[in-house]
C-alpha cells in the first residue's frame, strides 16, 4: 500500500511541478530529494541510545540535503539489530531513501559466521560515524582496590553485562584475553540495570563507555566508588588521563584484542544498501559532512553531553574491507563463542 500512497504523492508532485515554472538543469540535479521522505532505520526498539542516536541524525541531516527532504525514523527491532541490516542488504531499494544504522558489533557477528547474518558490511556504502565509544572496565574500589588486586584475585570479580552479542560483552572478553585476567561474567542485565547491580552490590563492576560513566555515574569516579581500572585505547581518553590503557598494562595484548578494539570503537556507522547509485550516495555524504560542522548539531550534542569524535566514511569502509579479508582463524573461533 505504501506504493499506492507513494504513487499518489508522485502524481501530486508531478501536478505541482507542471504548475510551477520551468526549472534549470542545475536545480534539477539538486532536486533528487525534493518532496521525498528519507527513512533512518534503526534495528532496536524505541528508547535506548541507538534509537536516540538515529533520532538525532533524523533531526539534523535533512536540512543539509538539497531539496529539504522529510526524514523519519523507523524502528525495525529484531535479532540484536541484525534484522534491520539483513533488510538493508537484501530488501531495501538502493534509491538513497533508506539509511541504516549499523551496530558497532555487527561486523564481528559477520566475521563469526553467525547464521542470522545475511549481509556483508564491507559492501555497504558508509556515510560515516560521528562518535567513538571508548570502553572502560569499572570495578568497585571497596572490593578490588586496583588492577593488581583484580589480577591476583582469589574470588573473581563479578561483572554484570548484557551478555552475548553486545559490544560490552565482546569487550569484557577482550579485557580478559588482552590482560590475562579472569572475570566472572553475570550475563543478562540491561545497560543501566548493570550499573544498578554494581551500586547495590550484586555485581562488582561492569564494562561501559567513557561517556556513559561520566554522564550517568560521575560519582563512581569522583567518590572513587567504582573507578575505571583500565581503558581500551589505543590512546588515553583526555577526560580520564590517569586511567591506563590496555597497551600500557600489556604492550602485546594479542590478535583478538586488536581485531575487536579498533572496529568496536566506531560507534554506530550509518550505511546505505549495497548498489545504491553514486548520485544519492554523494549527496548524502556531502550532507553528512555539513551536518558534522553544523552548530545546531553540536548544540544538541552538548545538551545531551555526547562526545563528538567523527570517523570519515572511507576510514570505516577501509577497516571493514580489511578485517573481512585478514581476520585470523583463531580470532574467528573465539568470536563464534560470542555469537552463537
Amino acid at each position: 500500500m505504501r506504493h499506492t500512497i507513494t504513487a499518489v504523492n508522485t502524481a501530486i508532485t508531478a501536478v505541482v511541478a507542471l504548475l510551477s515554472f520551468g526549472t534549470g538543469d542545475a536545480v534539477r540535479a539538486a532536486d533528487y530529494y525534493k518532496d521525498k521522505t528519507i527513512t533512518v532505520n534503526v534495528g532496536y526498539k524505541p528508547g535506548g541510545s541507538a534509537d536516540a542516536d538515529a533520532r538525532l541524525i533524523a533531526k539534523h541531516l535533512g536540512k543539509h540535503i538539497p531539496g529539504n527532504p522529510n526524514i523519519i525514523v523507523q524502528n525495525r527491532p529484531g535479532g540484536g539489530g541484525v534484522r534491520a541490516i539483513n533488510y538493508a542488504y537484501n530488501r531495501a531499494e538502493p534509491d538513497g531513501l533508506s539509511v541504516f544504522q549499523l551496530g558497532s558489533a555487527h561486523y564481528l557477528q559477520q566475521l563469526a559466521g553467525s547464521k542470522a547474518v545475511k549481509f556483508d558490511v564491507s559492501k555497504m556504502p558508509i556515510l560515516g560515524a560521528w562518535t567513538k565509544s571508548s570502553y572502560v572496565l569499572a570495578i568497585r574500589s571497596d572490593k578490588y582496590a586496583n588492577f593488581e588486586a583484580i589480577k591476583n584475585a582469589k574470588v573473581l570479580p563479578k561483572i554484570a553485562d548484557k551478555g552475548t552479542g553486545s559490544g560490552t560483552a565482546v569487550m569484557t572478553v577482550a579485557w580478559q584475553k588482552g590482560l590475562n585476567i579472569k572475570l566472572d561474567v553475570l550475563p543478562g542485565y540491561g545497560s543501566s540495570e548493570s550499573s544498578l547491580a554494581v551500586e547495590r552490590g550484586e555485581a562488582d563492576g561492569r564494562t561501559l563507555g567513557v561517556s556513559g560513566i561520566l554522564r550517568r555515574s560521575p560519582h563512581w569516579i569522583s567518590k572513587n566508588f567504582a573507578p575505571p581500572v583500565v581503558q581500551a585505547g589505543p590512546k588515553r581518553d583526555p577526560r580520564i588521563p590517569d586511567v591506563p590503557t590496555v597497551y600500557d598494562l600489556n604492550p602485546n595484548p594479542g590478535k583478538f584484542y586488536r581485531t575487536v578494539n579498533e572496529g568496536l570503537a566506531f560507534s554506530r556507522p550509518y550505511a546505505l544498501p549495497p548498489k545504491t547509485s553514486s548520485e544519492p550516495v554523494g549527496i548524502l555524504r556531502t550532507a553528512w559532512g555539513k551536518m558534522l560542522k553544523d552548530d545546531a548539531f553540536h548544540a544538541d550534542l552538548k545538551k545531551r553531553k555526547w562526545t563528538f569524535v567523527p570517523t570519515p566514511h572511507d576510514e570505516v569502509e577501509k577497516f571493514y574491507q580489511e578485517v573481512m579479508k585478514d581476520a585470523s582463524p583463531d580470532v574467528v573461533k573465539d568470536l563464534k563463542k560470542l555469537f552463537p
Binding site: A52, S192, E193, S195, L196, R215, D300
Partner: peptide, 28 residues
C-alpha cells in the same frame, strides 16, 4: 526507578529516559 536510577521500568519509560538526557537531566 527511572528518576532515581535511570533504570527504565518499561519501553515507555526508556523513551522518557531519552528525554531526560536531551534536556541535560541526569537521573539519580
Amino acid at each position: 526507578p527511572t528518576v532515581a536510577f535511570g533504570v527504565p521500568g518499561s519501553t515507555g519509560m526508556a523513551l522518557l529516559l531519552g528525554v531526560f538526557l536531551i534536556h541535560g537531566l541526569t537521573p539519580g
